[in-house]
Amino acid sequence: MNKPFWTKWRHLMFVLLVPLVTSGCGERYLVLNPAGPVARIEQRLIILTIVMVLIVVIPVIILTAVIVARYRDRPDRTAPYMPEWSESKVLEVVWWGIPIVIIGIIGTFTVRDTFRLVKPQLPEAPLTIQVTSLNWKWLFQYPDQNIATVNYCKIPTNRPVEFVLTSDAPMNSFWVPQLGGQEYTMPGMAMRLWLQADKPGVYFGHGANFTGKGYAKMAFDVVATDAQGFDQWTKQVKASAPPLTKQGYKNLTTKQDIVGKQEFSSFPPGMFEADIRINGGMYMKHQLKEATD
């Protein structure tokens, strides 16, 4: 007795349905829930790419099933044998021409939007936040406000934010999925990433580059609030938090413990720039040593 279709294929159906049922769980789909203009542009590129790829993938899947069903050997029929057939100009044009057009469309929109995000035309002066990835924590410095935080930062809504990124530890990657794509943090270098939040909220951020045993806990929050709330917060930090001294920064860099959120009412002038120069010099010495060995 033949089993019903769903009985024979129940394991495959289970595998296909589980992602759909659990699609609202966890943080894995935050990239598809944008909360700012940069993330929305990147979401459009993702959707465009998926649609363009499906133009190729769906016909290939359908044709594979048709070819297998039509040309397979069966007891009541033998697949036709055509020894004189060698090529088809029409098919050659189809399976070369369509992918070329698709790559051209994806490439055009990707290059256009990438340059827009790398060198954005900002309507107003951005808020600058200097970010340093450590083991295994994140340090955020506000040069204009002269305050600093660890493992969280606060930004005003509807205002562009320029994150200037470096590392005083192994190379890492700064990523806030709902606000935009990731950017690397590297010792001795200053990378830039422009993001913006359109609405208040707490946005999940994480290091997207494996850096050791504390990597899994290397998360941070980006708290977006209105301009008035941001100003009140900066004043509160200035009034109540302790200063970040050179020794305090050294403790952050040398202690590899996973720490919680911290606030500092000030930090030594030029600390971020000095860190880049020091790490950059150490990197160059390392490269020269490798070249001469």
Rank of each mutant, 00 (worst) to 15 (best):
N2P: 15
P4I: 05
F14P: 01
V18E: 06
G24H: 14
C25A: 14
E27A: 12
Y29L: 15
N33Q: 15
P34C: 08
P34V: 08
P34G: 10
G36R: 02
G36I: 01
G36L: 03
P37N: 10
A39E: 00
R40M: 07
I41G: 09
I46V: 09
I46S: 10
V51P: 01
M52N: 05
M52A: 02
L54G: 01
L54A: 10
V56D: 05
V57H: 06
V60D: 07
I62R: 05
I62W: 07
I62Q: 06
L63G: 11
I67E: 09
V68L: 10
A69M: 00
D73P: 05
R74K: 13
P75D: 03
A79W: 03
W85S: 09
E87W: 13
E87Y: 12
V93C: 07
I100D: 06
I100K: 09
V101C: 09
I103K: 06
G104N: 02
G104D: 02
I105N: 05
T108W: 09
T108P: 04
F109A: 11
T110P: 07
R112D: 09
D113T: 08
T114W: 14
T114H: 13
R116I: 10
L117W: 14
L122W: 12
L122C: 13
P123H: 10
P126T: 02
L127F: 07
I129D: 03
I129N: 05
S133Y: 02
D144M: 10
T149P: 00
V150A: 12
N151C: 00
N151Q: 06
Y152P: 02
P156H: 05
V161L: 06
L165I: 04
T166H: 04
M171F: 07
N172Y: 09
S173W: 00
F174T: 00
W175R: 08
W175T: 07
V176N: 02
G180V: 01
Q182F: 06
M186D: 15
P187W: 11
G188N: 15
L195E: 14
A197Y: 10
P200I: 11
V202E: 09
T211L: 07
Y215T: 15
A216W: 02
K217R: 13
M218P: 03
A219N: 15
A227F: 06
G229W: 03
Q236K: 15
Q236M: 12
V237A: 00
A239S: 07
A239H: 06
S240T: 13
A241L: 01
K250P: 00
L252R: 02
T254W: 01
T254C: 00
K255I: 14
G260Y: 04
G260I: 06
F267K: 10
P269G: 04
F272V: 03
I276T: 04
G281R: 06
Y283D: 00
M284P: 01
K285M: 05
A291T: 07
A291K: 14
T292D: 06
